[in-house]
Amino acid sequence: MNNPSEPRGLKLLITGANGYLGREVVRQCLIAGHHLILLVRDPSQCPIEWDIDQRIEIVEADLANVVTVPQSDVVVHLAASMSGVAAVQQRDTVEATRSLLIASLRTDQPPAFVQASSMSVYGATELDAGDAVTEETPLEEHSHLRDAYCRAKLGQELLFSTAAADAGLPLQMLRIGAIWGPGRLWNAHLGIGAGPVLFQIGKAGQLPLSHVRHAAQALRLAAEAAAQGRSGVVNVLDSDLPDRSRFLQAFRLTGWPRFVMPLPFGWMAALARLTGSRLKHGLLKVPTLRARMLPLTYSNATLRDGLGWLPEAGFEDLMSEALPEEGHDQ
């Protein structure tokens, strides 16, 4: 719901606009009346309607090598690699973020910032089953045992926090849950897929989900807040979070998995401890296993109270909408 006091007609520079989340952010920001500068690596992949929309300026840029960027009110940084390869993460996430920040700070009037971070930056080593994850939860202290994506997002956060603090600029740091919606239902918090089988690790604990339209709404609200000089750290999560059993019951309507093999979390945790987290698979490393599979709850109170975010619908309604378009590839 729009608030009359919200700034209208901002000039937003958006990276990662061609991605799954980015296209929804573009749509919602246009509806809200903002003008957009889209930094994209390959303009030929942009929707054709962007070329004829006078509110959109498309700029071709490789963020890892960008030197200058157009003037804007707020930079909304969505671009990040999803690759598990450390070198790719370093270039396309960390180095790209550094280049973008340097270029943004060189403009005549440096902008406010919105960073699309991830719930993966939190550590769970010191948490107990049933604990709630909030913005006060400590960040991962054993990142060397986590995946390259987690390490890169931690690196992004450090770069943004340092740059914004040094320059005295507003920063909205949004830690977004596992983004889902039509065409993207699977997430890494369910277990291990092998052919028609899912090895389900535990049944309890909420899944830290963020529907694509919910996440886009949060990013648009964050950009408007940053333009007003407001900074903050916000966990972006749906209000209606299913536990693993509830999610899997709905997900199986896709036709996968055909078989479910339950693996108690305690067994996996014991195996990871016995092997000293030396085995190759990420879920056999204690920090990764606990971050993804420890039964936890999640709060979005800051999102609702601080940004005025409202959920569009509950889990079952959103899942029902997504299911006809969902295919699963294991």
Rank of each mutant, 00 (worst) to 15 (best):
G276F: 06
A272L: 11
R290L: 11
H281C: 07
K280G: 08
L274C: 11
G308M: 15
L307R: 00
L307K: 00
K280S: 14
L296Q: 12
N300H: 05
K280N: 05
R292P: 05
S277F: 05
L310H: 13
K285E: 06
T302L: 07
G308L: 12
A272V: 11
R292S: 06
S277L: 09
A291L: 10
G276T: 03
R290G: 13
G276K: 00
G306W: 00
N300W: 03
G308P: 12
P287R: 00
P287Q: 02
L283N: 06
R304T: 10
Y298F: 15
L294E: 12
L294Y: 06
P287A: 03
K280A: 15
R278E: 08
A301F: 02
V286C: 14
G308K: 05
R292A: 06
W309E: 00
R278N: 05
V286S: 11
R278K: 08
K285S: 06
A291P: 05
L289P: 14
R292C: 08
L284K: 00
G282A: 12
T288S: 15
L283H: 07
V286F: 14
L274Y: 10
G308A: 11
Y298N: 04
G306S: 09
P311W: 01
L303G: 01
L296D: 10
G282S: 11
K285D: 04
W309A: 00
S277D: 02
T297I: 09
H281E: 12
A301Y: 02
K285M: 10
S277H: 01
G308I: 11
N300V: 04
D305S: 14
L307F: 07
H281P: 06
L310W: 06
L310P: 09
K285A: 12
R290Q: 15
L296S: 04
P311Y: 01
D305Y: 05
N300T: 04
P295M: 11
P311C: 05
R304E: 15
T297K: 14
T302F: 01
G306I: 02
L310N: 14
G276W: 02
L310F: 13
L296E: 08
G276H: 02
T288N: 14
R304P: 03
D305E: 15
G308D: 14
G276M: 09
Y298E: 08
L289E: 15
Y298L: 10
P287S: 02
